[in-house]
């Protein structure tokens, strides 16, 4: 199934008419389940706030992870209901379908974050500081968490449905212990651990170097571009996988 230019050429925010219609369709089909997920999400926020933990980045991590996972629910539901064939009979190309999934996911993640933030701020006894929650650093950390989840999971879920999560996570979970067992057996465990630590430290050094070397606005732009590039690469992989999918 070769890519084709969409026949609806007018674009708003980079999306054509079909993309918006697909996002609208996902909302109509999933609004009840999304609302329920957001309700559970809000309840979690209230409970977290009541715990009076002074761990702002834990709050950011859990909130953004929740928001990212909620975005997979329309897709997972479509796969579970075997609705992908219906989607592919609509007058939209497969590229439209994948693009709408990515934009819809980011839109939903943003809405999820806003809901979480509102509840966390309004809940009695809240320790979430508004200036922290909307600080650019915090938002970039949040966007990175959402990106990491979406970049890895979306292509797999688009290709394999819910089992795509397992297709990705099970081999990863098996790979790491196997690598450690092999390294232990071959006496290279220390060197493997050192390499991993060195890799993580290098990444931290690069980010710190960028932060120190660039002005604040340039640093933020660099991070945003990096996240955009990761999402773009993930989107292209998802398109290639979905093109091969037979329904």
């Amino acid at each position: 199934m070769t890519p084709e230019p969409s026949h609806s050429a007018e674009r708003v925010w980079g999306l054509n008419r079909n993309d918006w219609l697909l996002i609208r369709r996902d909302w109509i089909l999933n609004r009840v389940s999304i609302s329920m997920a957001l309700f559970v999400f809000a309840t979690f926020q209230v409970l977290f706030v009541q715990a009076q933990l002074d761990l702002p980045y834990v709050w950011v991590f859990l909130t953004c992870m929740w928001a990212a996972l909620i975005t997979l629910s329309p897709l997972a539901r479509e796969m579970a209901d075997q609705g992908a064939a219906w989607s592919c009979t609509l007058p939209a190309s497969r590229i439209d379908l994948v693009r709408a999934r990515y934009f819809g996911a980011w839109l939903l993640a943003a809405v999820g974050y806003l809901v979480a933030l509102s509840v966390a701020l309004l809940a009695p006894g809240s320790t979430v500081v508004p200036s922290f929650a909307i600080d650019l650093d915090t938002l970039l950390v949040g966007a990175t968490i959402v990106s990491v989840i979406l970049v890895f999971l979306m292509p797999s879920v688009i290709r394999f449905g819910v089992k795509g999560v397992f297709v990705l996570l099970v081999p990863l979970n098996l790979l790491l212990p196997v690598v450690f067992v092999v390294s232990k057996a071959t006496g290279t465990q220390d060197s493997l651990e050192n390499s991993l630590l060195a890799g993580l430290q290098s990444l931290a050094t690069v980010i710190a170097g960028l932060r120190d070397g660039l002005s604040r606005p340039l640093f933020y732009i660099a991070i945003v571009l990096l996240l955009f590039a990761l999402n773009w690469a993930s989107y292209r992989v998802a398109v290639a996988l979905f093109m091969r999918r037979e329904l």
């Binding site: 084709e4 079909n18 089909l29 007058p91």
Partner: peptide, 29 residues
């Protein structure tokens, strides 16, 4: 294939086993 979206807007298709989201009303579908 090359005109997939345009063609599908001009085709009416009824599958052997229609599958839509089961919890959605016909009006919403």
């Amino acid at each position: 294939v090359t005109h997939e979206a345009e063609i599908k807007s001009r085709i009416g298709y009824v599958p052997d086993e229609p599958r839509y989201h089961p919890d959605i009303t016909l009006e919403n579908l």
